[in-house]
């Protein structure tokens, strides 16, 4: 099994953090994992994206030419990546700011108004963690426990309140997606 996911959005939306937190969780679970960010001039103009591959076997290429999952936090990302997603794959959309929907019939779409939900929680910055909750629920790449523990480790010595709000945000996203 190898699962590849692309996270994409504006710089500042915490897109790379989404990838790094998933990669760390997968590592802590004992999986093989690679994380590859877009770099250099690609970043100019304020977009950011990264690719995470998780597997129970050695990962050959860290690039995802046909990702299983795509998480888009802004509209340009949807246009850039939607056609790459493998048939039967899933696209997670930050529907708070993206009105468009994928023009493909062969992928599943999950709309999560994560920016609005973050505002409701009183912290605009946790939209990415809410989206991760939804993503983990559907993808099941790692368990919520491992994810949250890993997230706490990366966040390091920062305030307890942060861990608390992250937990809430994750739960909100996780519960938003119905089975």
């Amino acid at each position: 099994m190898i699962v590849k996911t692309i996270f994409s959005g504006f710089g500042g939306q915490g897109v790379l953090m989404m990838g790094i937190s998933l990669a760390n969780s997968a590592m802590n679970k004992g999986y093989h994992v690679t994380y590859l960010p877009a770099y250099g001039a690609e970043m100019r103009g304020g977009t950011a994206n990264c690719t995470v591959a998780v597997g129970d076997e050695e990962i050959a290429s860290p690039v995802a030419s046909e990702p299983d999952y795509l998480i888009v936090m802004n509209l340009p990302s949807l246009f850039t990546f939607q056609n790459k997603v493998s048939a039967g794959g899933s696209i997670f959309i930050n529907s708070s700011i993206i009105d468009a929907r994928p023009n493909r019939q062969d992928v599943k779409t999950f709309c999560v108004p994560c920016a609005d939900m973050a505002q409701e929680l009183g912290n605009n910055r946790v939209a990415n963690v809410i989206m991760m909750g939804a993503f983990i629920k559907k993808s099941n790449v790692v368990s919520p426990d491992i994810y949250l523990k890993s997230l706490e480790i990366i966040m390091g010595s920062r305030k307890k309140t942060l861990a608390e709000i992250n937990r809430k945000a994750f739960a909100a996203g996780f519960d938003y997606i119905k089975d």
Partner: peptide
């Protein structure tokens, strides 16, 4: 190469 430099692995 650039891929090896930028890529993260455990």
């Amino acid at each position: 190469d650039g891929m090896m430099g930028q890529m993260m692995e455990p």
